[in-house]
Structures are given as C-alpha cells and as structure tokens.
C-alpha cells in the first residue's frame, strides 16, 4: 500500500433512489449472461421471421390484404417475446436481488445507508428498464423484419402504407400486451428473489413460477369438471400465467398463439380486467418484496 490520499474531512454522501438505480444499472450492464440470453431471444425472432416469410397465408395475403397477414404474423412474434424475454427478465431480476445475499454485498449496500425500500425499488426499476429496452429493440427489429418481408413479397412498402387503422391499433395493443408480460416477469423475479434471499433458489423458483401457475390452472379446470364449484372458475381468473396467455388475444382480437397451447382462465375477462389482474399481481409482488425486506435481519 502506498501513501494515503490527501488528508481531508469526511465526505457526506447521500444514498438516494436515483443513486441506487444508477448502481443497479452498472451491475446489470456488466452481467454478460443476461446479454447473451437477450441476444438469443433476438436470434429466435430472426428464426420466427424467416419461418413467417415461408408461410403460405402470409405470402399470399401480404401484398393485397396486409391486415390478414399481420393477424397471421403477430401471435408468433408475441409468443416468442413473452417466452424469451420472460426468461431473461425472470432470471435477471431475481438475480439482481439474490446476488446481493449470495455475495454478501447486501451488508455493504445497506450498511452505508441505502434503505431497504430504495434498494428493492431500484432493482425493480432497473429490471423494468432492461425489459423496456428489450421490448423496444424487439419491436424495432420486428418492424424492420416485417418491412423487409413486405418489400420481398410485394416489391415495395406500399402494403404498409395502405394498412387500415385497425392494423396499427393491433400493433399498439400487441406492444401493450408485451409490456404487461415485462411488468409481470420483473415483479415475479424481484418478489421471489426478495422472498428467498438466494441466488439459485430465487432464479429456479422464478423460472418455475409460470409453469406452476399454468399447472394450477389445469388442476382447477380438472377440479371444476368434477365438482362444478364456481369458486374454482373465479380463482382461475386470478392466476397470472393463464391471464397473460390469453391477454394478447383479448387485446388484439386475434387467436393468441400462447392462448391456443397454454392454459387460460375459465372465466372470460375483458382486456381491461385482465390488465387489472396483471396490475394486481404487480402490486402484491412489490408489496411482498418490500415487506420481506423491511424488517428481516441481514445475516448473509
């Protein structure tokens, strides 16, 4: 060790939410596996776009009826985002929380005056920013891909120019449905990470959350078929995974790819009500993350 820095008085740092968020962004930015996974999602998008370019309906409809082609293309694109970005967000958000306990860095962060609620909210905000970035890049690349496909099949971008307003509205609602998925996965990751205080446990449980949620929907469906209890139908309407499976179809009016193959609630909610369920889960998971972080001793 060399001579000390020039003597001076103590500094007066002020940990704030903004400072905590800045630190979380640096942590996230430097985590290579997150970006590798995100890159993998974009590769999947490329494969989907290539498959769509070979689709008979799209090839025949796109030049003359772009809305029909869009109806054909959107569900697959949305499904890949929900599944791919979902995995990225579930793992990265639960990792952001669990990592602090696994490495013991929670002692350094909290021992310097960052409050527990500031830390939880900063982690949530950082994960939401990652999700938003993924969504923007995904939407942009999808737009570029579909435009190139249009030019390839129709010889120009004219079909995009004549697409009716309904088509643009559907695109907007598709983005909204993807945003709901981003919000849900982020909240699940942070909530489970805070509850388990474990890197591996948090990541595993976050990944398992939606399969378990969907499995529960199937169990409820089977139980309802046997007992015909209305409460089982009502409970199924509160499950997050099945709600997200049906949401794209509810918002855009298309047959959602996820809703076709994955369980959905037994009660038919409106798009607004489904968004209400997503918002409710977000708030419950956030409240849980804040509550379990607030008073428990840090022994990591």
């Amino acid at each position: 060790m060399s001579s000390p820095p020039a003597a001076g008085g103590e500094e007066s740092p002020t940990p704030t939410f903004a400072n905590a968020l800045r630190a979380e962004i640096i942590k996230l930015r430097s985590h290579r596996p997150t970006w590798v996974l995100a890159g993998f999602v974009l590769v999947l998008l490329g494969l989907v776009l290539f498959a769509l370019s070979q689709d008979v309906v799209i090839r025949s409809e796109l030049p003359s009826r772009p809305l029909a082609a869009l109806d054909q293309a959107l569900p697959a694109v949305q499904f890949v985002f929900a599944a791919g970005a979902g995995v990225v967000l579930l793992t990265s958000s639960s990792r952001l929380v669990g990592m602090e306990y696994a490495l013991g860095t929670i002692r350094v962060v909290l021992g310097r005056g960052t409050t527990r609620s500031q830390l939880v909210l900063a982690k949530l905000a950082a994960a939401l920013l990652l999700g938003s970035l993924l969504l923007v890049v995904y939407a942009f690349l999808t737009a570029v891909g579909l435009t190139l496909l249009t030019v390839h099949l129709a010889g120009s971008t004219a079909p995009i120019g004549v697409m009716p307003a309904t088509g643009w509205r559907q695109l907007g609602l598709a983005v909204l449905s993807c945003a709901a998925s981003v919000v849900s996965c982020t909240a699940v990751g942070v909530g489970v990470g805070a509850a388990t205080r474990s890197l591996t446990g948090g990541m595993v449980l976050s990944i398992l959350f939606f399969p378990l949620d969907n499995a529960l929907a199937l169990v409820l469906r089977a139980a309802y078929a046997r007992d015909h209890l209305d409460v089982l139908r009502s409970v199924s309407a509160l499950l997050l995974g099945p709600t997200l499976n049906r949401l794209p179809g509810l918002l855009t009016g298309q047959a959602a790819a996820s809703g076709a193959v994955l369980p959905t609630p037994m009660v038919r909610l409106t798009g607004g009500e489904s968004l209400g369920v997503v918002a409710g889960w977000f708030l419950v998971l956030l409240a849980m993350a804040l509550a379990v972080s607030a008073r428990r001793d840090v022994l990591a």
Binding site: S30, L103, G104, G113
Partner: peptide, 20 residues
C-alpha cells in the same frame, strides 16, 4: 463482500454510484 463478476475498479464505481 464484493461483486465477483466486476473488476476491482468497477466494484468501487458501483458503490460510489450507490453513495453519490
């Protein structure tokens, strides 16, 4: 307690950002 995936300098950078 340190972030193992970050460099020594980046560890200080993260905590400096946290403190402001």
């Amino acid at each position: 307690a340190l972030y193992l995936h970050l460099s020594g300098s980046d560890n200080l950078r993260v905590l400096a950002a946290e403190l402001g």
